[in-house]
Amino acid sequence: MRLTFLGKVSNPTESPTLYASDQDTYVVQGWKVTDPEITSKLEVPSGETIVEVPSALFDHLINDGVTGTVSAWACPIVHVTSSGNYIVQGEAVSDAETLGQMSIPGHEDCVEVSKAAIKALLEENADGSGHG
């Protein structure tokens, strides 16, 4: 799978990143979710995992020609934290070639989700810009 960098939300200790793939999917890199209050609410099937990312990460969809703001909470966005971060569920990325295209610190992981599933959660803004 080939990845195209769309953007990141980062500071010196955090680096959630959004990529588009050549498989009609997005790869979302974010923090591993270990909070038992969150994990106890979710059913994560074998082969899938969850990551936490700032909602602003999805502003980078514009770099893939996708506009709109997230307006629905359904898979792959399966939870919103009290701080407004999104919990994103998807297929765990384990392919060495794909992982080799990213820099993933030990406290982070990444998931692959379909572009269609993300687009289904978006709503165009009234001004048509797609920006909040």
Rank of each mutant, 00 (worst) to 15 (best):
A120I: 07
D64L: 00
T67I: 09
C110G: 00
V9Y: 00
M1G: 13
S82T: 05
A126P: 01
E14W: 06
V88E: 04
V51T: 09
D127H: 11
G68L: 00
E52F: 06
A72G: 09
S114G: 13
G30Q: 01
T98D: 05
E48P: 01
T13Y: 13
G100M: 10
P54Y: 02
T67K: 05
H107F: 12
K119S: 08
G84V: 06
G90K: 12
V53N: 00
C75N: 15
K41E: 14
A116Y: 07
V28N: 06
N11M: 02
E123M: 14
L57P: 03
I62N: 01
A117C: 07
H79Q: 11
A92T: 15
D64V: 02
I77P: 03
V28W: 02
D59Q: 06
Q29R: 01
D59L: 08
V80T: 04
H107N: 11
P54Q: 08
D59E: 10
G106N: 12
V27C: 04
I87V: 14
Q101K: 05
E37F: 13
V9H: 01
E52D: 12
L57G: 13
T25S: 11
S21P: 06
E108D: 12
P45C: 07
V44H: 11
I38H: 06
W31T: 03
P45K: 12
V113T: 04
S55G: 05
V70K: 01
N63E: 13
V53S: 08
E108P: 01
S55Q: 14
V33H: 03
D35M: 06
P36G: 09
G130W: 00
L6Y: 02
K32P: 01
A96W: 11
H79R: 12
A120L: 11
S55K: 14
V51I: 10
L3Q: 03
G65K: 05
A117Q: 08
S94L: 12
T17S: 02
A72R: 12
A72M: 15
A116I: 07
L61W: 01
